[in-house]
Amino acid sequence: MTQKKTQSYWGLVWQQFQKNRLSVGAFYLVLFLIAVATFGNLISNNKPVFCIYEGDVMFPAFKDYGVSLGITEWQGTFAIKDWKDLKYDSVIWPLVPYKASSVDLMNPVAAPSSEHFLGTDETGRDVLAGLIEGASISLSIGLVSMGVALTIGIFLGCLAGYYGGWVDIALSRLIEVVITFPSFFLIIIIAALYESSIWLVMLAIGLTGWTGIARFTRGEFLRVRNQEFVSAAQALGFRDTKIIFRHILPNALAPVLISAAFGIASAILTESSLSFLGFGVPPTQVTWGSILAGARGSTYAWWLAIFPGLMVFITVTAYNLLGEGIRDALDPKLKT
């Protein structure tokens, strides 16, 4: 490094990260997917993005966010009427003028066309709209289940690593038990036998996926806890919680981040597997896996297999590459 300016740790990491072009690409791809997930309502909606109706200027697709959050509501005719039947003075429709869940029985299993860019499934739902909605579902599955896993993993890892002794022994045993567990089998059991709910799936994935994180955290804590700054903090009489969260945890975050990226990838994969099998999410919820499952019923409909399959693949690859990139960036051995 020729640069003389002092660099923060994360700045250095970012610089390292940028060296791996593939990972950078993956990073932008992930950002793109997040954007799609966030602005899905504007790209694919059965309501206009912008319209002038009876003199009123409206942004119905934007308002949809408010409605789904419960902040605002559709009034009068707008709540009942199909927006496509209204007569507008001026209107801009989204790129995909369908909602993922809108059934069109006149058009089941239609091949890609100018009307439905990527075709429709067996109840006439637009595949592209489904892919867009699937993006936000898979993202939230990844984030929530990893959130659960992170919470449990970091908490138990902290306890084991910081206190050591019998706490460490007990928790390490617990981790080993959970690792030996055939977790996907358990997830299938839960998803297949209980009523379908997306939250249950997230919870199940989270509850079985925390072991790696706990191990990393524990390892970092064991490494760090005997260092001087920790002893100093203890000598100063700081509370344990403060030492753990303020002083040690930030140091242990880096490896946890890596396993979180991989974790998101595997959570997305798990969820699409479940949907493919017909378990997990409620029936009307469109996900990549559920579109894929439709391909088994109508084998000639290649568009039901290729597009969602591609989405799962791209997304999972992106998260994996991202994880890989972060790992390389953090690995001091490869630092130049």
Binding site: A265, A295, A305, V316
Partner: peptide
Amino acid sequence: IGYSVPGYALGALLLV
């Protein structure tokens, strides 16, 4: 590519 494709999904496609 192989890494991101679950085996059974590949199997289902191959079979079809």
